[in-house]
Design a protein around this nucleic acid. Sequence first.
DNA 1: CGATTCTATTGAAGCGTTTCGATAAAAACG
DNA 2: CGTTTTTATCGAAACGCTTCAATAGAATCG
Lengths: 346, 346
Amino acid sequence: MKRKITIHDVAKKAELSVSTVSLIMNNKPNVNEETRRKVLEIIRQLGYHPLRSARGLASQSSGNIGFILTEDHFSQAEPFYTKIFLGTEFEARNHNFYILLTTVGWTLKDQSQVPRFLLEHNVDGVIIAGKIGSSWVEYIQEQNLPLILIDYELARHRVSTIGMDNRTGINLVVEHFRTGGHSKIGFIGGDIRHPSIAERFASYRDTLASAGMPINSRWISVGEANTSLDDGYEAAKRIFSLGGERPTAIACANDAMALGCMKFLKEAGIAIPGDVAVSGFDNIEAGLHVEPRLTTVNVHREEMGGIAVRRLVEMIKDHSSVITKTLTPVELIVRDSCGVKESVSD
Amino acid sequence: MKRKITIHDVAKKAELSVSTVSLIMNNKPNVNEETRRKVLEIIRQLGYHPLRSARGLASQSSGNIGFILTEDHFSQAEPFYTKIFLGTEFEARNHNFYILLTTVGWTLKDQSQVPRFLLEHNVDGVIIAGKIGSSWVEYIQEQNLPLILIDYELARHRVSTIGMDNRTGINLVVEHFRTGGHSKIGFIGGDIRHPSIAERFASYRDTLASAGMPINSRWISVGEANTSLDDGYEAAKRIFSLGGERPTAIACANDAMALGCMKFLKEAGIAIPGDVAVSGFDNIEAGLHVEPRLTTVNVHREEMGGIAVRRLVEMIKDHSSVITKTLTPVELIVRDSCGVKESVSD
DNA sequence: CGATTCTATTGAAGCGTTTCGATAAAAACG
DNA sequence: CGTTTTTATCGAAACGCTTCAATAGAATCG
């Protein structure tokens, strides 16, 4: 068992003290440039890598970032949050951080549920993705840990967030329907309590309103408990079971519900997009494999994770506690389910 | 900023030395039962949790397990490996380990690609899931790190693996077709170089052979580069473009290819399961949402991850290096795509 | 040119644990 | 009952790094 190479080995070979080597390892100022180069070269030669736990102990920091997801979010068939996680993992490497992922229940009930990385002070900051009970946010803030929320926000809490441009997304969809000749446009929202969903719904109303188009509450379903495929199915059933005038297009607040909506329409013998056009939001894989392929709004998941890490690392290093709200852009992806071809404009 | 509670606080309150407290924290023998109880109670009261980095430094262990996935595996739409990861994460908690997940390229080309957790000795063992270049396995074994492979194996390397009972799975499928009246059963395998796929293919042949049924090479497609939906599509096209007698059932080596196969059949106007029955393997979500719903073989992904962690922790703690090969059970899930109802037998 | 400031380097303390050899007390032994 | 073994506890060294006060020399200043 060959001994590990330590900072002492480097120091000895460089004929310097370990302090100097340490300064260099941490990019501290007041080191002669030549010395720095020499030591860096020796480090390379020796293949030296500082031991995480020793660093951590001495500097009172772990070099880890905690990533918290509710159990149901992570287990989802669609890797929406998985992609976000991947984005954090990639970006974390650039900053020499590790990501510790853990799943938790919806709310923090008692101490035994607290992720071990929080108890053991094994993270320097935390990222939470998706909707989650506010008790978690409160707990983490009490610990004075930098925190970022992705794809969620809590009105009553001062916390930095990374979101996506929901309003523009739905605006693009509705405008696309409108310029394509639709005037009776419905909306399926599911769980409207989710901030992102609420924004999408608001944007739907605003867009219609500012275009001077009718808003018919019978074309809208936003009361479902969740935003799953089944919720979309039920919502569509509700809308199309009602008598009276029917919508000719349905904007769904996400792809899962759009898929559920399409499932219902097919079963009911309603042609897509012939009788009714459908659109989603999120650009999940499954939208590509359904027939007709789903028109949707693309969201940059990896990028959201990456931005979250960058912001968090800033907060960790600068001890800054400025609250920011970052929006990532989205874009309309026109496929077959909306029956409107992308028109060459501008 | 309130000071953290350390082992010294516990020791002082208990009027004992830190050594004794440490012994108790680590479940070491030769501690009076009453003392142990007393200290444990004090630890509870104080809410003491040892600092990971201090432990790590002193005991020359990190308390982390590395989880390595190739980039393409993790990015896959279907959360097959994500589920496995989740299983490891759950089980790791029970053993007081953290999982550090990272993705890597197919082969290890140069030092700069080595995950940082390996360079910094920040893991006590490694789990690799899915097919991967053998250079990675070799590198990790050189580091004398305990290693487990999930859903993959390398014939030429001595390494413990966790797999699933592929042979039984396909056997169940083919038997189900046979007893349901099918005698012309085809197979779509995709990338036969993957050990799991190879086993499934072998089991297909064996089952047919031992039932005395014909094996027609024109009903078989196993040359594809991969095992994706598109590969399934192409394979089906190949099989059904050939003239001559056609199979009445197709066993696919995984669900993705089964879905691709179904896509082709639908486009070709071939009824499922009327003209051709189809089955998959893996029991992915998408199989539930396709029409008709896919008959498949269920695999316990989370459990595979959990077992991997248990085995790895054993290896870490016991310094044992016994090579084992663990198979997790599978079960047939009969849905609509095979056109055979589950018969009440036995 | 003496005093002050700045730059580069260092020695040593300290971070919170584990571990090992030492020790005293209790138990078992012949 | 003296000797050996076992049990329970402890003190101190070690783990590999960061950090901070100290120092000496170089540069700058009035």
